[in-house]
Amino acid sequence: MSTRDLVLSALFAAIIIALGLLPPIMLGFVPVPITAQSLGVMLAGVVLGARRGTIAVLLVLVVAAIGLPVLSGGRGGLAVFAAPTTGYLIGWVFAALVTGLLSEKLVNRDQMAIAQTVGFFIAAVAGGVIVLYACGISYLAVVTGLGFQKAFFGSMAFIPGDVIKAVVAALAGRAVMVGYPLLPQRA
């Protein structure tokens, strides 16, 4: 791994952490507060691609695990990995991986703007919503003994917020690609 890629991943990890420090916002039609941190996970995949994006997310989790309160709501320490919602944290890694892989596959610089945005949106939804919730819900269902249906029901309220984040991630991903292209990976 080149030093530049290492630094890019570390800087993006810092961006994800900073997004978690912003206060959660309430949207009119979604009954739960949404935080910008999982937007950061989608952005990591969209902007950095699979390898560097996954490393950025892993770094955030490591920094949290060693005792810095860097996850949204000031959570941190090993205890967040013993919580019923740990599946969502582990899911971040796969979310960034899948978002990154699909972004690299679906989007290239010769496409029209709209095709690039749609490609990024598909990648962000597949990784940041489908894969993320599959991990989170499976873990919640097994750990609490709730079963998949009820765990799904309990997580449903958060999905609209995450789809909106995927839209933001797609638009931002394209804007960043125009302004400072990092995809496709060079190293």
């Binding site: 290492l6 630094v7 570390a10 990890a13 810092a14 952490i17 900073a18 770094l59 955030v60 060693i66």
Partner: peptide, 10 residues
Amino acid sequence: LAIGLVIRFV
């Protein structure tokens, strides 16, 4: 090194 960079840049 990477952990140090993250903490430094937040």
